[in-house]
Amino acid sequence: MQTVVVGWQARPWRPAPHNLGRALAALRGGAQAVLLVRGTGQRAYRHALYPTDFSGASLDGLRQALRVLPRMRLTLLHLCRMCGEGRLQAAGVSVDTLDACRRRAEAAARAAGVRFAARAACESRLALLMLRQPWTLAVAGYANMVRADVLVLPAGPAGRWRGAMWRAALRTVLARTDCDVLLLA
């Protein structure tokens, strides 16, 4: 697997879009993974953060990340949301009932995460966040909170509209984090 390392270029205006464009160009050039390095000094990576939706594509991405970054503490981050929460609140459902629904949603997500980690056959820690903000802010906030060394993300979906939306999300995450980023093809 070919991994390309791209150094972060500090630009005074809009550095996240500039550096993301460079990394995506390397992926279009045939790289299987691009490591976007922000620091200048060499350091050993200790902690990687991998946001996942527990899908098959996410499992493939995790396996690819483990080939690029072996022997690293890995946190699987899953953002779960209780569907229809706003409607339930508007309908006057009690706080206790909403909390019970949230706990059930979180328990189902945790069980799915355990199955996902078992399928990946890797040692990992599962972190679940109940989503109450856009996922980009949740991922960036968690990466900063745990001081992740590397954030592992897919390069994104094909297609003009979905690809543009994904690139916008990646720019937001890059602008709000300080860790290195591994983009997977």
Rank of each mutant, 00 (worst) to 15 (best):
A10G: 01
V95C: 02
P157Q: 12
A111S: 10
E85Y: 11
L76D: 02
R125H: 12
R71C: 03
R81T: 12
T40W: 13
L24S: 00
L66Y: 04
L183K: 08
A185H: 05
L24I: 06
L76M: 06
C122Y: 06
L129R: 13
L174D: 04
W8E: 03
V152G: 05
L153Y: 10
A175M: 06
G113I: 00
C122A: 15
P157D: 07
A100L: 13
P12H: 09
R171P: 01
A23Y: 10
M145V: 01
V181H: 08
L126D: 01
A169W: 07
H18G: 04
R171I: 02
D60Q: 15
A109G: 01
M1H: 09
R14Y: 12
A138R: 06
G7I: 04
G56E: 15
M82F: 12
A90E: 13
R46Q: 14
A109T: 09
A121H: 14
A143N: 02
D99V: 05
F54C: 03
G21I: 06
R46A: 10
G41Y: 05
S94H: 10
Q64H: 12
L174G: 02
A100W: 11
L126V: 08
V114G: 00
T3R: 06
R71G: 06
A31K: 06
M145N: 02
G30R: 08
R81L: 14
